[in-house]
Design a protein around this nucleic acid. Structure first.
Lengths: 139, 139
DNA sequence: CCTTGACCTTCCAGTCATTGGAAGCCTTAT
DNA sequence: ATAAGGCTTCCAATGACTGGAAGGTCAAGG
């Protein structure tokens, strides 16, 4: 299989396969006499594993660890679970951060007339730093 | 005010202030005879505006627009609201994406014993591409 | 045999919003 | 006079790709 075939079979872009090889995420592929990379079906399996892990938002660094555990027959499921739960914790933290941003903005947007007049609570919040809110009593 | 004073007053790092100037997000500061940047309190206000907008997750590109609308006395609040709601839509899309990742992983982690044995549903999912799930009947 | 087109190769640059460092000038205090 | 600290510029790196240029290789068709 050439890199194009491996790309089709794995769903990972040929360019990205070369990149993954260059950073050491996947082992260096064999070569033909002309220098073309050659892939086996087990190489494609690794690529698919990586692709699925990226879909679940794992960083390249953690995927390195997961691939290592995957290949290690004497791994403990506890190790895998810990890597996964560390990632879940990061995802939840990010979600909470975005949730707070979105809720604040939705609140401000609801208070904004959205007409031709210039008066706008959204800009007022940005101007004042969002320190206080319409629902809070002054100190 | 020097750039260090403006940084303290606005909460924006001096390095970042220079960067914002270099990309044209904020107007170029005046200079002393020796070439030091000089800031006024209205410059600090712009920096605070930018900082607050970044805290709400707006991209630099959208902040350019928001700063423009903020300075424009003949703006309509509808324009501001549209920029804000576009951003909210992006935030919500990102949240949904991360939510799906997190839920899938939490589900897999719950099914994982997390002990010394190598058997692990998380790795099985990554191997198989997550195409099917333990709750689904085979075709 | 030659050309065309579709592959493959490497290397370099750009994305986004910062952050870090190096080398050198300016100001203030001792 | 000198030391400390702040200021200046420019270059490089981050993560995870993506794009393009310049050139080598391969199979089919004329």
């Amino acid at each position: 299989m050439t890199i194009g075939d491996a790309a089709k079979a794995s769903g990972v872009n040929a360019k990205l396969i070369r990149y993954y090889e260059s950073i050491g995420l996947i082992p260096a592929a064999g070569r033909t006499a002309a220098g073309y990379r050659v892939y086996s079906s087990s190489d494609v399996n690794i690529l698919r594993f990586v692709k699925r892990a990226r879909t679940l938002g794992f960083s390249i660094e953690r995927i390195q660890i997961l691939v290592g555990l995957w290949q290690d027959r004497s791994r403990s499921s506890a190790e895998v679970k810990r890597v996964a739960l560390d990632h879940v914790a990061e995802l939840e933290a990010k979600i909470a951060e975005l949730r707070a941003m979105s809720d604040t903005l939705k609140h401000l947007a609801r208070a904004c007339h959205g007409d031709e007049r210039p008066d706008c609570p959204i800009l007022r919040d940005l101007e004042e730093g969002g320190g206080r809110c319409c629902h809070e009593a002054p100190p």
